[in-house]
């Protein structure tokens, strides 16, 4: 039962349990897996263009109001940002290991890595909304002496907010995968759903890999 889990709510709603792993419209399991992967890659292309709107706006306003953006960026905590990047890279690693375990059909390892990825994801969201990072940004937004700093803050909140939303969807998706793994639905020859959610998770990680330097490191932090 492979489905490109475009909408996270979807993967969980398929009540119909299909005895053989193969869907009726596919010829063989290999075609079903390829279709699932290819479908997710096409969906990731749409996600890339979904973020393109905000990236285009960011690039334009950063070059138009560079000084304001640099001032705004210096309000943010770089070390916290770096830690968040490290956490997300770790979650990507555990996710890859989870897919690896699913392929081997090793249920215990799969559950272990899936839960660690979820924990790391929640940790990332936690770090994002801690006092250290959140309040200075909010104060900067309100008390911005100069409106270009306010514009940067708007971009900061909008882009990280969009990313956090995708993180929440990802964590929901992995939660569903963990439940399915717990119920033993993920077998060695039928692990495609985990692989597909892994692709989605890695994509969200890549978005953050770009967000971190673009938002936190404008113009470097040398004093």
């Amino acid at each position: 039962m492979s489905e490109s889990a475009a909408g996270s709510s979807l993967a969980g709603t398929s009540g119909r349990s299909v005895s053989p792993a193969l869907h009726h419209q596919f010829e063989d399991i290999e075609q079903q897996r390829e279709a699932g992967n290819f479908g997710m890659w096409v969906f990731l292309a749409t996600e890339m263009l979904f973020f393109s709107g905000v990236f285009t706006g960011y690039i334009i306003y950063r070059s138009l109001y560079y000084s304001g953006f640099a001032a705004g960026s210096h309000v943010l905590e770089v070390d916290l940002g770096a830690a968040m990047t490290a956490v997300l890279l770790a979650s990507s690693f555990t996710m890859a290991m989870a897919v690896h375990a699913a392929r081997q059909g090793n249920r215990a390892m799969l559950l272990g890595f899936l839960s660690s990825t979820i924990i790391l994801g929640i940790a990332f969201l936690g770090m994002k909304f801690t006092g250290l990072n959140f309040h200075p940004a909010v104060d900067a937004l309100r008390g911005a002496p100069e409106h270009t700093v306010e514009l940067f803050m708007c971009f900061y909140f909008f882009m990280t907010g969009l990313h956090a939303l995708h993180m929440i969807i990802g964590i929901g998706l992995l939660g569903v995968m963990a439940i399915l793994a717990w119920r033993g639905k993920i077998s060695a020859e039928h692990y495609n759903r985990v692989e597909v959610s892994g692709l989605y998770w890695h994509f969200v990680d890549i978005i953050w890999i770009y967000l971190f330097p673009l938002l936190y490191l404008i113009g470097g932090r040398y004093k």
Partner: peptide, 30 residues
């Protein structure tokens, strides 16, 4: 590198490293 003053190259280097990281995640993890 962000703490070293490279002038305009700061951004270029940061984005280059980000691109390398993206390729790594993309090629191997995905």
């Amino acid at each position: 590198i962000a703490y070293i003053n490279l002038g305009p190259f700061n951004t270029v280097v940061a984005l280059a490293i980000a691109a390398v990281k993206m390729c790594l995640v993309g090629l191997f993890f995905m």
